[in-house]
Amino acid sequence: MTPASSAKHDRRPPYQHAADELRREIKAGRYKPGDQLPPYRELQERFGVANMTARSALNVLRDEGLIYTIQGRGSFVADYEGSGIDYTPPAWYLANDSKAADAESSEGAAEKIGADSGAAAGSTLTAMLTALRDELRALSAEHQALRREVEELKKAQQSQS
């Protein structure tokens, strides 16, 4: 099934559909940690999308921590289960994917995203977004500190030379 066939009732961009399908395959175990994903050209043909659309789909998965890319080699499935990364699919994915929502609901995902009612979903979503914002700020601060440390190490190395 290509994402285009389900796009009639779902107005999300094609790259989201391609990312959804690849995410399902990774979660189902078709691609195991360390496995290489198909190259962009194969993804273009499979999903009937442009090169940049295929790249955008992989960027989504990379941003979620499901895959990593090595320049000139390709994209590979990350070991998100053994790496300490607590992967939880995005709320919009769970809301749009009944199979994933059914599978995750046994783990309490419905309560996490507030699927009980519209008001609860809004407040829970707001809480999740606030928590994500705070986490991004903390990661950004840590990133900046690491960049400063790298610059200091470079300067120290240059002064020793």
Rank of each mutant, 00 (worst) to 15 (best):
V77F: 14
S5W: 06
A127N: 08
L153H: 09
E107Q: 08
Y15K: 11
P39D: 09
R11S: 07
S159F: 08
K155E: 12
A115I: 04
G118Y: 14
F47P: 01
A156D: 15
S140R: 10
S161F: 06
E25H: 02
Y31W: 00
K154D: 15
G114N: 04
H143P: 10
K155H: 10
Q16Y: 14
Q158V: 00
R11Q: 07
L66F: 01
G74N: 01
Q44W: 00
A91Q: 04
I26S: 05
A110K: 13
K99E: 01
S159E: 06
W92E: 13
Y40K: 08
L66K: 12
T126K: 15
P13V: 11
R23C: 03
M128I: 07
A121I: 00
S106E: 13
E45T: 05
D86A: 12
Y31Q: 01
D63R: 12
E25S: 05
D116N: 09
A95C: 00
P38E: 01
G65Q: 07
M52V: 11
T126E: 15
Q16N: 10
T69A: 07
A120L: 15
A141N: 07
A28V: 01
E152N: 15
E81M: 15
N59P: 01
Y93K: 04
T124L: 12
Q36M: 08
F47G: 02
S75K: 06
A110D: 06
G118W: 04
A91E: 04
Y68T: 00
L66M: 11
S123F: 15
F76V: 01
A141G: 07
R62E: 06
R137D: 09
A57T: 00
L94K: 10
N59F: 10
E149F: 08
V49F: 02
V150K: 14
A119R: 15
Q44M: 11
A131W: 10
R148K: 13
D134S: 11
N59W: 05
